[in-house]
């Protein structure tokens, strides 16, 4: 029996995958609406009251927090490997991990605070 080393890699990969699914399913439509359709005047944006009702619903708050965290885990994992393989800088591993997962932590806290403070 080989000694099993405790590794986070499978967990990080699962979070990456879950984030990948969220990214594929919801980002295109949201970017299309808020990034292009409303700014370019193709469609008129929803009223503030409506946005508040949509985002402020307890279910939305939880969904937004979880989705943002998963999306950031998706970014962190992929970006980390892009730096390893694309630039061949695996020797800077500690710095890369700090940058990527530090980013996840900061972004996730920000997301949590922002949905919590919604009136």
């Amino acid at each position: 029996m080989v000694k099993r080393t405790l590794t986070l890699e499978p967990l990080l990969w699962l979070l990456f995958s879950a984030g990948g699914v969220v990214a594929a399913l919801v980002i295109p439509v949201l970017l299309l609406l808020f990034g292009l359709a409303f700014p370019l005047g193709w469609l008129s944006p929803p009223s503030h009251a409506h946005m508040l009702a949509v985002l402020g619903h307890p279910l939305s708050r939880v969904t937004i927090f979880v989705s943002c965290t998963l999306l950031l885990f998706h970014w962190a994992h992929r970006f980390r490997y892009t730096l390893y393989d694309g630039l061949q800088i695996k020797h800077l591993n500690e710095l890369i991990v700090l940058l990527c997962y530090g980013g996840v932590l900061v972004g996730s806290i920000a997301a949590g605070y922002l949905v919590w403070q919604l009136p």
């Binding site: 990214a23 980002i27 808020f34 503030h48 508040l52 943002c68 999306l71 970014w75 490997y81 892009t82």
Partner: peptide, 28 residues
């Protein structure tokens, strides 16, 4: 490599979307 770089734009979306959430939270 283009597929892998898409992750940067996923991160940008999170920032953009959280700016929207923050703005909605601060009022009309």
């Amino acid at each position: 490599i283009l597929r892998e770089l898409s992750s940067i734009f996923v991160a940008w979306f999170v920032v953009f979307f959280l700016l929207l959430v923050a703005a909605v939270g601060r009022g009309e």
